[in-house]
Amino acid sequence: MTRQIFRYENYTTRQDPTVEPEYSAECVGDQQACGEKSGKRSAANDVDDWMREHMRDAGHRHFRRSFEDFAELELTAGIPTALEPARFQRPRP
């Protein structure tokens, strides 16, 4: 019989600081979809400004906003919580 040892590492997901996130919005209209898009922007405030301008020009008030970023996994120390031995306390009479 072959013996195998499995080692589990604990990782934390975080935003990659070397890449800027991207923000965008698409007008979904009020009665039917308009479909006009803001394009990708580097700041959420730029998308908010575009939505206000579109509302002023077209009168539409409903948008779908998107946020995209890159993520990385970072190794964290210790045993993953799910793999720690169970702690059980016996009830006392």
Rank of each mutant, 00 (worst) to 15 (best):
P85K: 10
L75N: 13
A58N: 10
F63H: 04
I5R: 12
D46C: 04
T13R: 14
E36Q: 15
A58L: 04
T81S: 15
N10I: 04
E53H: 11
R64Y: 02
F70W: 10
D46Y: 08
T2P: 09
R87N: 06
E20Q: 15
K37P: 00
E68L: 13
N45A: 15
R52Y: 01
R7E: 10
Q32A: 13
W50A: 01
R3L: 08
F70C: 10
D49E: 09
F63E: 03
S38N: 03
H62M: 06
R41S: 04
S42Y: 09
D49W: 07
D48H: 13
P80F: 01
A58H: 11
Q89M: 10
E72F: 02
V47A: 01
C27D: 02
F67L: 11
L83A: 03
P21G: 06
R61W: 00
T2S: 13
A86C: 09
R90E: 04
S24V: 01
S24W: 00
F63C: 05
E72M: 12
Y23D: 01
R64G: 00
V28S: 02
P91V: 11
D48S: 14
E68D: 15
G78L: 02
I79A: 13
F70S: 12
R92V: 09
D69G: 12
E22D: 09
R41F: 04
N45C: 11
Q89A: 13
H54Y: 02
I5G: 04
L83Y: 07
S42F: 07
R14V: 08
E22L: 14
E68V: 15
A43L: 05
R56Y: 03
R65L: 06
V28P: 01
E53K: 15
T2C: 05
F6R: 12
Q89F: 06
D46T: 10
M55P: 04
Q31N: 14
E22R: 11
A25C: 02
K37S: 08
T81C: 08
I5T: 14
K40G: 10
T18P: 01
D46A: 14
H62R: 15
S66H: 03
Q89H: 11
L83D: 00
A77Y: 02
A86H: 09
F67Y: 15
